[in-house]
Design a protein around this nucleic acid. Sequence first.
DNA 1: AACCAAATGTTATATTTTATAACATAAAAA
DNA 2: TTTTTATGTTATAAAATATAACATTTGGTT
Lengths: 136, 136
Amino acid sequence: MTGSEIRRSMPLFPIGIVMQLTELTARQIRYYEEHQLITPARTDTNRRLYSLNDIDKLLEIKDLIDQGVNMAGIKQLFTVKEQQALDENELQKQDEKVRRDLSDDDLRKLLRKEFMQAGRFTRSSMRQGDMSRFFH
Amino acid sequence: MTGSEIRRSMPLFPIGIVMQLTELTARQIRYYEEHQLITPARTDTNRRLYSLNDIDKLLEIKDLIDQGVNMAGIKQLFTVKEQQALDENELQKQDEKVRRDLSDDDLRKLLRKEFMQAGRFTRSSMRQGDMSRFFH
DNA sequence: AACCAAATGTTATATTTTATAACATAAAAA
DNA sequence: TTTTTATGTTATAAAATATAACATTTGGTT
């Protein structure tokens, strides 16, 4: 994990600050947590502490809600994006490896990965219908 | 003012977080404020809010105190460094101007500024003796 | 040694913030 | 129309913060 990723995931902000930064109410922020869209850390005295990543997510949530997406939709979007990020990371690592040492076997693996990547968003990982509102 | 400077001066952190990040007690942090080494913002309900800059300063203070510097010394160091930063900014702006349009007059001004800069730390702005412990 | 001031600790009290939970409500979905 | 979803509102308890006063420690002075 890189340094900036560590900093971005460091639990720093109490809910009051997060309210200001996101212009969400405490009720909303806790509700989104209840629906597992974020999982802030806790102090040893049970106070929630949010990271920069959490705040980014909350801003994304706010945006999506404005666009009419519900909790389930947002959750799906997050898992898809998470998967994408992992795939892209994997692709990049593969690319680097290829640049160092390109074997037939690696090439096959790489192509398979990129194929999977290209096929994203056509099926899988989202149950059909849920996201149909995006494609009309 | 640049974007990063704005972010670094944004009041974000309540004192509890600052205590963790700096490993200073609330008493110490407030004491340094009492001596005008930092001036955190206040919420409309009188809670202190510290910026990243404040936190950096507190870490510097901690370091200097470990080295035996007292409040007055730290204050002097801060004003000197502040002045330095302003001078450097000024120098840079002059440099840029020169690159665009170098007149004899500007050249004279620039040289005078750089001369001043070189002579820093020999006298002035610190009363002799206060900082002598640094130069033995 | 006795003293003094600087830096920090400790304690008490009042206010503010946060957590949890329950009930209320408006808008969207079924 | 009835349900569900997202959010508001209210009450209560616990934690965090502000202020101020007094206590303690420590290094330097006399």
